[in-house]
Design a protein around this nucleic acid. Structure first.
Length: 278
DNA sequence: CGGACAACCTGGCGGC
DNA sequence: TGCCGCCAGGTTGTCC
């Protein structure tokens, strides 16, 4: 579910609520959510540690503690939010982990599909391994992107979804970025010229930035930590718009399968290329 | 290296 | 209303 914009929105919302608070106790009812260390060790080790910052790397939410990093990956349906003491308890039967904070407040991890994972590690790198560049960071330049694209020969859609290639892009923003670039999802990465690559570079960054400015997309499960919805879904060009007219050219948006993932594109704005398989 | 597919899980929705 | 199959924002491991 959550991609870079959604995770970034959660991080920004959570940071002022949990920084400075201490984790006093941990409760859980689905052991597999606690990836590592094992639940009993996890609980003992996290107890008493204070939260100093909340940041993001790729789609991981990172809580900086006294001696460790607490990492949360929301996967498809995970939610992370703070419940203040005395607050109206939400009707949420999918809470699987709770961290008791100061003055009766708690940090809740809810996840209906139970794909989400929580880690406790002394180094972020022990958990986040082999991840590609952050697309919104300064060291990610259009020339670097061009070189990376040309060093591979893969359809653009699955390549953008590959976290080792570029961090944080998921199914929604991959489709949105490809539309913004005018490139077909099946176009082979090795066939891109410098101009194409630079255009895609800008499109990826613009799509992600727009997602952040709209506080993420709430299509189904995603909610901001305060329980409200993001608005990014109201600004999509192609995702979920199959059968509807393209905002740019009025052609009908199509949906195909690429690498087992639903893929939306405009057949007129993103024409097939001799270098693509369709 | 790239592609296909199964797993991990549950809920919502469309179709009959 | 009930049941069934399909779909879903992610990632990992296996096999070819």
């Amino acid at each position: 579910m959550p991609e870079l914009p959604e995770v970034e929105t959660v991080v920004r919302s959570l940071r002022p609520m949990v920084v400075g608070q201490t984790i006093h106790e941990m409760w859980y009812d689905w052991p597999r959510t606690l990836h590592s260390p094992s639940p009993d060790i996890f609980a003992a080790r996290v107890r008493g540690q204070k939260v100093h910052d909340v940041t993001r790397r790729a789609k991981y939410i990172i809580l900086h503690l006294d001696h460790d990093f607490l990492l949360v990956h929301l996967k498809m349906t995970g939610r992370l939010y703070v419940l203040e003491a005395g607050a109206v308890v939400p009707d949420d039967r999918w809470i699987h982990v709770r961290f008791q904070l100061d003055k009766g407040s708690s940090l809740c991890f809810s996840d209906s599909r139970k794909f989400g994972r929580i880690y406790l590690a002394s180094q972020v790198e022990h958990v986040v391994k082999g991840i590609g560049p952050e697309p919104l960071e300064a060291d990610f330049t259009p020339e670097v992107f061009f070189q990376r694209l040309n060093s591979r020969d893969r359809a653009l859609k699955p390549l953008l979804l590959d976290q080792a290639f570029v961090a944080g892009v998921g199914n929604i923003y991959a489709d949105e970025a490809l539309f913004r670039s005018g490139l077909h999802p099946l176009r082979r990465s090795g066939t891109l010229g410098r101009d194409d690559a630079y255009r895609l570079y800008g499109a990826v960054r613009d799509a992600l930035s727009a997602g952040i400015s709209h506080e993420g997309a709430s299509i189904n499960w995603y909610r901001k930590p305060d329980g409200t919805r993001g608005n990014s879904q109201d600004h999509f060009f192609v995702y979920g718009r199959d059968g509807q007219p393209c905002h740019t050219c009025q052609a009908t948006i199509e949906k195909i399968r690429v690498g087992q993932r639903g893929t939306h594109f405009c057949p007129r704005c993103q024409p097939a290329h001799k270098g693509s398989a369709s």
